[in-house]
Nucleic acid binder design. Structure first.
Length: 493
RNA sequence: GCCGCGUUCGUCUAGGGGUCUAGGACGCCGGCCUUUCACGCCGGUAACACGGGUUCAAAUCCCGUACGCGGUACCA
């Protein structure tokens, strides 16, 4: 049978990183099995509905490269709010077959019951106000009069519910530990439990892949499939993602640690890296490969190799993946991703220049935003000079040497890179720059390092960076000379 | 409280009765390379939660305890 998997978020907030992980596993499994990946919006909660949440979810999936084969953006019938009639008719059917019943309890009465430490179960329902305790005539009269009521699942008083979860293995619940779940709310909307089961069946879902927070309600869903005479899908409950401290990955704790909670806040990471990181959080390939593209993941993923225990979010690891993927992406694609952001911050940038910068920066780029911080000097003259670097490298003769080198650069035959060709053949310039510097050192009878370090400091403001001559070649004569002279004036002897 | 699930280096994990003096990756610490930084390479640090069984043999199977996570809503 063709595999059909669905990702079924609720539009009560923006797409969460944990939600993306669930979506990823759904997607990967569907692709691996040659099946279909469905996006279904579970908008049955009117009170918590967030208007732009659905767009955020769709955008988040697109950003990550997880394209649904079916979904609300492709056709009607994928939002539960469009399917209420279906849920109501199924609820009626359950009512008729005795698998569900009407209950009239007030919120206050329910609260009082909870305060007593009880749940609405086989053991307590006889103390409440419902079709089991009211005379049948009154039930019918109330229903006819349109009295507000809910429809509850009639959970058997004994026996147990067992099913085999693909990641958790065999799971067993005693029926009397299950409460009489509300299926239809008094406003006529279905709860998650009803709508989810009805839709999974109606949409031919073969595998339910979702977060572990659903494991406890899974037996109620199994009961529903049973009552309806439907074959239940296979279940796979994914372990949750925890914060580094071990607790829940809450907004507050996460932001304090610099961990974005919403997918929309991952803009400074490459989607490929986030995907790779998420995939390995709970899943392990049988090999020791760590860096994966989406295509590679699609080819190797399996639910059987998903770990049953929760995993903690590790920012360092995400950063490492980000660096790996930045390298794997290559300068052209990185340039395309960073250009507009860079230009809106710093004005127009010559594409060929940007390309040369990326080549020279190379694997030193951990995150795109490094170009605005650690490597900002490629786009703006340094505003200050690293004090520790100055202390260590800016000796008494530094000013004189830097000035002399500036003069030498002005006189130098400097093969400028061809602006039309981003191929960055800067080797000629590099050689000339190095030759000029070593010449100067020889004339002064000092080591080249005596000049190299002050020059780096003067032109970049820091002591760390790419090979000096490659860096100078990229910066170009004008910037170099200006910066050398300015540093000499500012730093003095 | 009750129900369910889980527990191997700081973190992600491999392993599923003997091949485990427990492997890999991130991080951290050394070293090499390099007149910077990063990459790369070499080396180091560091774990089977605890207690009982079963077995010739247990990280691996069973039971209990502890701890963690989830659920216990007219939220999903």
């Amino acid at each position: 049978m063709a595999v059909r998997v669905r990702f079924a978020p609720s539009p009560t907030g923006y797409l969460h990183i944990g939600g993306l992980r669930t979506a990823l596993f759904c997607y990967l499994f569907a692709r691996r099995m040659g099946g279909t990946f469905v996006l279904r919006i579970e908008d049955t909660d009117r009170a918590r509905f967030v208007a732009d949440a659905e767009d955020d979810i769709t955008a988040g999936l697109a950003w990550a490269g997880l394209d649904p084969d079916e979904g609300p953006h492709l056709g009607p019938g994928y939002r539960q709010s469009e399917r209420t009639a279906l849920y109501r008719s199924i609820a009626q059917r359950l009512l008729r077959s005795g698998h569900a019943y009407a209950a009239f309890d007030t919120p206050e009465a329910l609260q009082a019951m909870r305060d007593r430490g009880e749940t609405y179960s086989g053991a307590t329902r006889r103390a409440m106000c419902n079709a089991f305790t009211l005379p049948q005539a009154e039930v019918e009269q109330r229903l006819a009069a349109g009295t507000p009521h809910v429809v509850r699942l009639h959970v058997p008083e004994d026996g147990e519910v067992t099913f085999t979860d693909i990641v958790k293995g065999p799971v067993t619940f005693a029926a009397d530990s299950l409460d009489d779940q509300i299926l239809l709310k008094s406003d006529g909307q279905p709860t998650y439990h009803l709508a989810n089961v009805v839709d999974d069946h109606a949409m031919g879902i073969t595998h339910v892949i979702r977060g572990e927070e659903w494991l406890s309600s899974a037996p109620k869903h199994m009961l529903l499939y049973q009552a309806l005479g439907w074959e239940p899908p296979r279940m796979a409950h994914l372990p949750l993602i925890l914060s580094p401290g071990g607790g829940k990955l809450s907004k507050r704790s996460a932001t304090r640690l610099g961990i974005p909670v919403n997918v929309r806040d991952y803009q400074s990471y490459e989607p490929e890296a986030v995907i790779n990181f998420l995939a390995l959080l709970g899943w392990h390939p049988s090999t020791e490969q760590e860096v994966f593209t989406l295509d590679e993941l699609k080819a190797t993923f399996s639910l059987e190799r998903v770990a049953p225990s929760p995993a903690r979010f590790d920012l360092d690891k995400l950063r490492w993946f980000n660096q790996k993927h930045l390298i794997q992406l290559g300068t052209a694609r990185v340039a395309a991703r960073v250009r507009s952001e860079l230009e809106s911050a710093l004005g127009p940038i010559d594409p060929a220049y940007l390309h040369r910068v990326l080549v020279v920066v190379g694997e030193r780029l951990m995150r795109r935003q490094d170009l605005f911080t650690r490597f900002a000097y490629f786009f703006q003259d340094p505003e200050s000079y690293d004090p520790r670097g100055v202390k260590k490298r800016w000796k008494a003769d530094a000013k004189d040497l830097v000035l002399a080198y500036a003069d030498a650069l002005e006189a130098l035959a400097w093969p400028e890179a061809d602006a039309q060709s981003p191929a960055t053949d800067l080797k000629g310039a590099e050689g000339a720059l190095e030759h000029a510097l070593r010449n100067l050192a020889a004339m002064r009878g000092i080591g080249a390092g005596r000049i190299i370090h002050p020059v780096r400091l003067a032109t970049s403001g820091t002591t760390a960076g790419p090979s000096l001559f490659a860096m100078l070649a990229v910066l170009g004569r004008e910037r170099c000379v200006r910066r050398l002279r300015r540093a000499a004036a500012v730093l003095g002897p």
